[in-house]
Write a protein that binds this DNA or RNA. Structure first.
Lengths: 193, 193
DNA sequence: TCTTCAAGTCATCGAACGCTGACTTGACGG
DNA sequence: CCGTCAAGTCAGCGTTCGATGACTTGAAGA
């Protein structure tokens, strides 16, 4: 029952980062307390300050970009939107406590620098890639409009839990994804990946 | 300088509701403290509990639906989506910190019953109206997908502040609104209202 | 003018927060 | 076997949170 762990700074640090990522994603920055995180990692809360200096720096390190799978860019371009939708909506976010990171994003959006980091990541990960695919004028705007759709679908599905979207499978969305993506990007896009 | 107010229960209650709406919209439920709200209304924080019983009940009353103008349903049906977009993105919601009440409320989406109220309002105000316009199968799903787009645009514009969307005028969005709405609803839609 | 009652205030509670400095414990080298 | 030093713990500070009950104040009616 009371299995004790070896004293291992790096392992403990990594464990803290892991459970912190989970807590921040599920509850947002403010609602996730250092005591909760420490309890999840089964350590004393003060270790967080010993290892990271402050809650904010733990947050910064735990939510640093790069952990997001970048296989988005692999595969045929015409399936990019479908892959993005899978990533935003249908990926198994069990490493994030089953709750969608979008919730955490909204809950943590009160802090100005967090908003900036969200903007950075949205632009770098989604808008830029879509912009390259778009043709004609207004490419950036149309890329953002498509990103907005993906974000909106994610929120309506997993936060608001609108009835039809909540039950829809990826295949149900495919034809509509094809329609909208094709219309917005000005080139033929597939709805399934 | 020190202008004192008359003792007026109803006026004070109304003032509390007004500043509470603003605070909750701007900061979300948790981050908006009763002391802040009371300070904005220039009253003692205790009055909030005297008049509303608890912070939660103040929130419920302050964010109760019904204030949303229902001129959405007036006007030509083919301009419905454009009117909705104006309402979500370009209307002056100064009573809600400049953001659409739905976007404002999503900041408080950590609490389960708040989510349910958001769902109710999204369905009643947007999905149902759009569903009536849609043609063919999957009408509800396509109505929700269009609602998701509107919500996503509101969030990317005013919370994430994505560059192109943040600066776009309603006219810039019009052609794309027409494209997407027409594609999703299966009938010709106009992009401007 | 004086009573009365609601409008509004004050002092404070208990819990939770981030964070700190002093302490204890465990593993490894001599 | 023991000294050392880092890993980990403990008690607690200062602040803020929502909430409560006793108090003061102002205006209207007799």
């Amino acid at each position: 029952m009371a299995e004790k762990r070896k004293r291992d700074r790096e392992a403990t640090r990594a464990r803290l980062l892991e459970v912190a990522r989970l807590r921040f994603a599920r509850d947002g920055y403010d609602a996730a307390s250092v005591r909760d995180i420490a309890h999840d990692a089964d350590v004393d809360a003060t270790l967080i300050f010993r290892y990271f200096g402050s809650k904010k720096r733990l947050f910064d390190e735990a939510t640093a970009p790069g952990q997001v799978p970048d296989d988005l860019l692999d595969g045929p371009p015409e399936e990019l939107v479908a892959r993005m939708l899978r990533s935003v909506v249908y990926q198994d976010w069990s490493t994030h406590g089953g709750e969608h990171p979008l919730v955490a994003m909204l809950k943590s959006a009160g802090h100005q620098d967090t908003r900036q980091r969200i903007r950075q990541e949205v632009c770098d990960t989604y808008v830029d890639a879509l912009e390259e695919l778009a043709e004609g004028p207004d490419r950036q705007l149309r890329a953002e409009l498509l990103s907005a759709w993906l974000v909106g679908i994610g929120i309506l599905r997993s936060v608001v839990a609108t009835p039809a979207l909540a039950e829809a499978e990826a295949a149900d969305l495919a034809p509509h994804v094809a329609t909208v993506a094709t219309g917005l990007l000005g080139r033929p896009m597939s709805g399934s990946a």
